[in-house]
């Protein structure tokens, strides 16, 4: 498969959130505002690319039987290193993204791509896959967050878009609102796909 194809498949065709349905926990938890969504999305993309590279590099020396624990160690170690170095040298960035970094360890998109893609493909394609999946995840998060932030807070990226008199629909910021929004968007996606 070509590099471009690997890159773009994660955005719509194999969108990790709406199609593969991976990484639901961070999607539900961090989609309360577009700010958070972008932060989480980019942090996850970064880790995803790096872990894909790592896994792809070591795929020949990891025995098949213990590959999952190896992935866990590699990803957890990597995330911790990113977390610590960011806290030490980029404190401002860490302040806004730091909250999401521990969440990335349990983001199963990263495990999922390591298992389903990176351990079978070469480094270049794995990078493309990481970028595409990461962007797809970021876009999906932003879409959910846009709906939730506008309805639940009357703002988008902290800019007020609803009139001052708008009484925010608080449920969209709560867990049930996250499930309902995600469910409806997934339904909409499937409906559009069937039409094609």
């Amino acid at each position: 498969m070509s590099f471009m194809k690997e890159l773009t498949k994660g955005i719509i065709k194999e969108n990790p959130t709406f199609v593969i349905v991976l990484g639901m926990c961070p999607t539900l938890a961090t989609s309360t505002s577009v700010n958070n969504a972008i932060g989480m999305g980019l942090a996850a993309t970064f880790v995803l690319i790096c872990s894909n590279i790592f896994i792809s590099l070591i795929k020949n020396i990891t025995p098949d039987k213990i590959r999952i624990p190896v992935y866990v160690i590699v990803i957890a170690a990597f995330v911790s290193i990113v977390d610590m170095s960011m806290a030490a040298y980029l404190p401002a960035l860490h302040k806004s993204l730091g909250l999401f970094i521990p969440l990335i360890v349990v983001n199963c998109i990263i495990m999922g791509r390591a298992e389903a893609y990176a351990n079978k493909n070469n480094v270049i394609n794995s990078i493309a896959d990481g970028i595409g999946m990461g962007l797809g995840f970021t876009l999906a998060l932003c879409l959910v967050a846009t709906i939730r932030e506008i309805l639940g807070n009357g703002t988008w990226l902290n800019i007020r878009v609803m009139p001052e008199t708008y009484d925010p629909m608080l449920i969209t910021l709560l867990a049930p609102g996250a499930f309902i929004t995600l469910g409806l968007l997934m339904g909409l996606m499937n409906m559009l796909k069937e039409k094609k």
Binding site: D167, L170, I171, L174, G177
Partner: peptide, 10 residues
Amino acid sequence: AFLMASWPTL
């Protein structure tokens, strides 16, 4: 329940 969660004060 939806109304209660969304506009508790109203």
